[in-house]
């Protein structure tokens, strides 16, 4: 049996918690004492480097480093509406602004957790919402700060995890300790050149259209595979030998105008550190639910 448990409500005040009853019960079982609901905010405006359409038809954008690929029209036509150039480029400035916004909100939440004397934050939820106009994004990170019973005060930054309840308990049982939440994005802009444009929409530009049959759209395939690779690479860079678990990847495509597509990949996951040997789970018993 556990050592005599510390009373949940500490001497100073009651606690608030964003946990469901089941998650709360699991926390107590793990010897995690909720000390308060903590949160952090940050509003960011990202710089814009996008060029006007007609300008890009004629000459490629130099990019800002990162992944850049240029596609050149094979037709040798020079016309304002014919896409002589096409490009896939990584929008580094958007990625940087996003990461900065997220990490500021996260560290402000951690400051609150430290003020509560917490060791960690469980059940983290983060949202990004666009504020009206001007491309401003508000980052909001929140969670429930907890103290580990029987562990003294620590100078380390509190650990964070999206997990709560039984999932977190299973992670501990499996020999993991949470390190931090990981959230990152990759953003690739696709400026279609003539071939991609007619393959996507079929025709309209000087009578060009796909009449050949099924054809793979190479520029889009490259962009889509790259954005997924970039977001995974960015997450891997934060791991330092730990594992990333329960990853969720979301792809959002936004067509700014015809043939000008922004592909964003948003990745979230739990960075967990192995602290003990994997305790194999007993093979679960198969059951059939009767109601």
């Amino acid at each position: 049996m556990p050592d005599s448990p510390t009373p949940v409500a500490s001497a100073t005040a009651g606690f608030s918690s964003g946990l469901s009853v089941a998650d709360f019960a699991a926390c107590l079982d793990m010897g995690l004492e909720p000390v308060g609901l903590v949160q952090g905010f940050c509003a960011m405006q990202s710089a814009s480097y996008a060029l006007a359409g007609a300008q890009r038809n004629l000459s490629p954008f130099a990019g800002q480093g990162g992944y850049v690929e240029t596609y050149q029209c094979p037709h040798g036509m020079v016309a304002g509406e014919h896409r002589m150039w096409g490009q896939n480029y990584e929008q580094l400035w958007i990625e940087q602004s996003w990461r900065q916004g997220f990490s500021s909100a996260l560290s402000r939440m951690l400051d609150e957790a430290v003020a509560h004397g917490a060791h960690g934050v469980v059940g983290v939820v983060d949202t990004q919402s666009a504020l009206a106009g001007a491309g401003i994004i508000e980052f909001h990170v929140r969670g429930t700060a907890v103290r580990v019973n029987g562990v003294g005060a620590s100078n380390d930054a509190p650990w964070t995890t999206y997990l709560a309840g039984q999932r977190l308990a299973k992670a501990f049982e499996a020999g993991f300790a949470p390190v931090s939440v990981v959230a990152t994005i990759a953003s690739v802009r696709v400026w279609a050149y003539c071939i991609t444009e007619y393959l996507m929409g079929g025709g309209g530009i000087g009578g060009w259209s796909n009449t050949a049959g099924a054809t793979e759209i190479d520029q889009l395939v490259r962009a889509n595979n790259q954005v997924r690779e970039l977001v995974r690479a960015s997450a891997r860079a934060e791991l330092h030998g730990d594992g990333l678990h329960g990853v969720d990847v979301r792809i959002v495509e936004h067509e700014h105008e015809r043939g000008d597509v922004e592909i964003q990949a948003l990745l979230r996951g739990n960075r967990l550190r192995r602290v003990g040997d994997f305790q194999a789970l007993r093979t679960p018993d198969p059951t059939v639910r009767l109601s």
Partner: peptide, 10 residues
């Protein structure tokens, strides 16, 4: 006899 359970997943 069926076992009674409460599922902990949401």
């Amino acid at each position: 006899k069926p076992t009674t359970i409460i599922s902990l997943d949401n």
